[in-house]
């Protein structure tokens, strides 16, 4: 039997790659044994012994490390979910505004996209947190009576308290991701044949209705894959929470790792939790994509 040459090459390359991985993995295990660490997860059930500033579920310091990490994960999920929704709205508005015939609207949105995409996210978060929110006065401002109160500790909207850390992270992530989504949306709109615009105009539809009923539905197949990758970026960028003092999964595992000295296990958990989160996002976006393709 003759083995095709290309197959042989692939086999050799695969063998070499697995050898390299094997060496690296062996190195890890040997070093772990040498330094006497070894991998185990028993510490997860021990009491964490640290408080968290922000908890969506009941939590006290005597709860386990596992529960503390879960609370951190929920905090991550919370900020990702809200900024995902807001960034999408902002992105769609800014993206469509760039195709607008109104010069003012168009230049404002171009300026927004250009400005935000040139500045690193970390700097933007520092700006929102240390410059914008922490500069608010210590005694609450109440611009519209009891409905909204603002201070450099928390924001209260209709009786619901939101920490400034959450707000700064939410706004930072939303504005940053919104700019990228705007570009994705603009690209999608441009992918629709020019003739479609002309035809709805000639049918007498106004710009808004034409956009909603004719152009956007046709541009969705081009928008959704780009949108998915922006959502994944958003989820990953949320780990910058630690820079503004928000108790997300990364911040919690940071504390956990220094307290237990279990860096490798801590990172395994961190990686796994992000994998789950991002698989959730990709999974639901794939379903959405299939729906859109079917409509088309």
């Amino acid at each position: 039997m003759r083995i095709p040459k290309s197959f042989l090459y692939q086999l050799i390359i695969a063998f070499i790659i697995s050898c390299i991985l094997g060496v690296l993995f062996n190195n890890l295990i040997v070093n772990l044994i040498r330094t006497g660490i070894g991998i185990n997860f028993k510490w997860l059930m021990r009491p964490a012994g640290f408080a968290l500033a922000e908890t969506s579920l009941p939590y006290k310091p005597s709860d386990t490390y596992a529960w503390a990490l879960f609370i951190g994960w929920i905090n991550s999920l919370k900020v990702i979910l809200f900024s995902l929704i807001l960034a999408t709205l902002l992105g769609i508005i800014a993206g469509t505004a760039r195709s607008s015939s109104n010069l003012l609207v168009k230049s404002i949105s171009s300026l927004y996209v250009a400005l935000i995409r040139q500045i690193p996210l970390l700097l933007q978060l520092f700006f929102w947190y240390f410059v914008a929110f922490l500069s608010l006065p210590n005694t609450p401002l109440e611009p519209i009576g009891k409905l909204l109160s603002l201070s450099n500790q928390s924001l209260r909207i209709a009786g619901v308290n939101i920490s400034v850390e959450f707000c700064a992270l939410l706004i930072g992530l939303t504005i940053f991701t919104g700019a990228s989504i705007a570009e994705v949306v603009r690209g999608g709109l441009n992918s629709v044949n020019r003739g479609q615009w002309e035809s709805f105009r000639s049918l007498g539809l106004n710009e808004r209705l034409g956009l909603i009923h004719i152009i956007i539905p046709q541009s969705l197949p081009a928008i959704i894959p780009g949108l998915t990758s922006q959502y994944l970026n958003l989820a990953k960028n949320s780990t910058l929470a630690i820079a503004v003092g928000y108790a997300d999964i990364y911040a919690v595992s940071d504390t956990t790792i220094t307290q237990t000295g279990r860096a490798i296990e801590g990172f395994i958990i961190l990686l796994a939790s992000f994998l789950v989160l991002n698989l959730l996002i990709t999974g639901s976006m794939n379903i959405l994509n299939k729906l859109v393709m079917r409509i088309k």
Binding site: L52, F130, N152, E165, D254
Partner: peptide
């Protein structure tokens, strides 16, 4: 606890009245 990764941020948070 308002936790920051860096001592300078702890100081900034304290000075700003957080």
């Amino acid at each position: 606890p308002i936790k920051y990764q860096d001592l300078n941020q702890v100081i900034a948070g304290y000075l700003q009245g957080r």
